[in-house]
Structures are given as structure tokens and as C-alpha cells.
Design a protein around this nucleic acid. Sequence first.
DNA 1: AATCCTAGCAACCGCCGCAGG
DNA 2: ACCTGCGGCGGTTGCTAGGAT
Length: 262
Amino acid sequence: MGRQPCCDKVGLKKGPWTAEEDQKLISFILGNGQCCWRAVPKLAGLLRCGKSCRLRWTNYLRPDLKRGLLSDAEEKLVIDLHAQLGNRWSKIASHLPGRTDNEIKNHWNTHIKKKLKKMGIDPLTHKPLPPPPPPPPEKNEQSPPPTAGSPEARPSPPPPEEKSAPAPGFCTDEVPMMHPDEIMVPLGGDELPPPLLPAATTCAAAAAVSTPTTSYSTSASSSSCCLSREEEYSPFAFMDMDFPEIVFQMDDDARWHDDCLL
DNA sequence: AATCCTAGCAACCGCCGCAGG
DNA sequence: ACCTGCGGCGGTTGCTAGGAT
């Protein structure tokens, strides 16, 4: 007999999480800690697979998550680590506090890969790309034999495409990089604390996330927290909890009011 | 203004390694 | 030593928003 699935999938919900589900999961994890993901959905009253709960928590709901674009320092670190570790996203993520493997993986696939290619660097090997883009095949029956050059056997970096100006520092293309300071704006203090939030064990509530796939209204928490835009919400804002300190993280386009503290 | 295309990201799937029995 | 179950990881998919035509 084969391996049992992580959960019997009949009757389980899939797809984007709702605000209610988020709240249930957050309440449960903060109240009970992380243990036995398989049991979490049942105990938390969720019609989800335990795996799904873990993923949602680690990738999205964890209080210590940073949101927003990777800073260029983070990006550079990701590239360096990728050169050493390859696609070991979780290992790479462990060097970037507040970032998840999924986030880094996505960022790599959507941003960094392109940038490296633009710079004439093979994102897989981190070596210069082999020179010519193949000549435009004009329906030629007998295509010229490919150069058959193995990338690693090529010691001298060929100049890539015309536009790839050698980056003086790092990443000079048109995508504006965010500075960490632009991402994290703690409230109520002049002195910026280190961008890392305390571990979730202390339950310092960090919040401010926006999700494109699920739009939430903040009405449920309007008494205590206000958001400038309706589609932004804080999962924590729904909770009837007493947090000793509130540390808000700002998404790049999220805007929190000063009086939003619970 | 409408439609199509592309990029970005959240979530799912299947496999793997490890620990406990 | 082997088997089973769980958690974790990496690859992939599918949906959505924004931009281009």
C-alpha cells in the first residue's frame, strides 16, 4: 500500500484563504504554539489540510515576516547564497530573517533571473552566459550546428548582448530597489530598531499585509484599527488579544495611521 | 473602451529525509 | 533493520492585476 496522503482530501477546502480562516489559524497558533500540523486544522476548526495550514502560516501569517520587495542588499545576498547553495531555498531563506523560502524562490524566478540574464550571467551556474544568441533562423532547413560549447568549459566571459552594461556596483537596470528603511517603518519611535522582529513566541504583533488574491475588509476591526485602504488588512487586527507591544511592518504600499494601535 | 498579454505571487503537489515504533 | 508517518522542501500551477495594443 502506498503512503497515506497527508490528509484525506475529501471535504477539504483549497484555494485562497479567507480572513476568517486566517484568524482561526492565527488564534490557534498564537494560543497553542506550533505543533503537529496534522492536528491543527481539526483543533483550529479549519477545513484545511495540515500542510496547507503550515504553508499559510510560514509563508504569510507569521508575525515576524517582512513584506515588500527585497532590498538590494538582500537580493545580493540571495544571489551569493544561491551561487553557493543552488536552489536550496529554505537554506537561503534562513540567512534572510523575515523572508520565506517561497518568497525568495518567487523573487528569484521573477526578478533576479531576469536581471542576471540581462547582466550576461547564467542564473543557474552564475557564470557568464555563452556568447551569441542563435542567429535568426530564417526557415533554414539545415540549421547550422550549434556551437556545442559547454558553458563551464569557457573560461573567458564573452560580452553579452549590447545592452548589458557592466554593472558598476550591482544591478543597474531599471527596476528600482527598495531600501529596507522604505519597507519597514516601525511606529512610535525615532530610533529604528533592527529590522528583525522578535520571535513569534513573544507574540509581538506585527502586521500589515495585503494580499492580491484575497481582498479583505477591515470593518470587523474598525473600532480599533484603521487602514487607509480597504483591501489592506491585518490578520491580527481581528484578534481580541492584548499585545504588549505592537510593531507594524509596512508593505511597500500599505499605509498605516499613527492611531492604529490596538 | 475593450481585449489581450505578461508578470507576479499565493497555494498546491509530490518527493525526500528523519524520527519513532 | 525495517516500516510508517510527519514535517519540510522544491517545483509547478493557476489566478489576479497591471500594462500594452
